[in-house]
Amino acid sequence: MPRVVLVASGKGGVGKTTVAVNLALALSTRDAVALLDADMTAPNAHLLLGLPSEKLRESNRMLIPPKVNGVEFMSIAMFFPRGVGLAWSHEKVADMIKTLIRYVRWDSRWLVVDLPPSSIDVNIEVLKSVGHTSRGVIVGEPHRFAFEDNLRMLDLMRLYGVDVRCIVLNKFNLYPNADLIAREYEGLGLPVVRIPFDPELAVRVKPEADYWIPVLGAVAR
């Protein structure tokens, strides 16, 4: 099993997928990396990374993940036509998560998992399955709502034994009280990585950007 990095957030729309994909690509310049988009209802990682051209195969009761841009990649978006919603019970979602984590032959040294926002059941399944052996990155924007939701996410990650390495505060320079919020996070004993607003991140991946270096450092140490 590779070293697992869980990229999580208590709040949606704060740039979790952007961080997960860029982190995976930045890590892939030095090591073999896999990326799992664990968001069953709103998977978006493929919009940044791309979809594989090869088909999923099986070998010895394990699924072989296809590669995209040199990264082993699995996402529910690879299997369902665009725009189709999943009318699934918790049981079916939990089964899919189990398959994607335990029954894929991840050959990489690192597995970056892009989790869905909040403490919904998918996240609990992942935390129960690999939490105690994982490193964690929490993503937020420096405002009160995201802070309150991330307190809950941090509590859950620590409950399941995740080694939370840092808090990434996205679009840092856009918020007037950003420094105040950053100090509150620091008070929780976690390094804060400040990512400036970069409009290019909305349209392309930018793993070469300097602002990822502290995230890489926190995750890989």
Binding site: L56, R57, F79, K92, M96, K98, T99, L100, Y103
Partner: peptide, 13 residues
Amino acid sequence: GLPVSFHALLWFS
């Protein structure tokens, strides 16, 4: 003994 989704994903492929 394998998860249901394991079979489903291979069927889709």
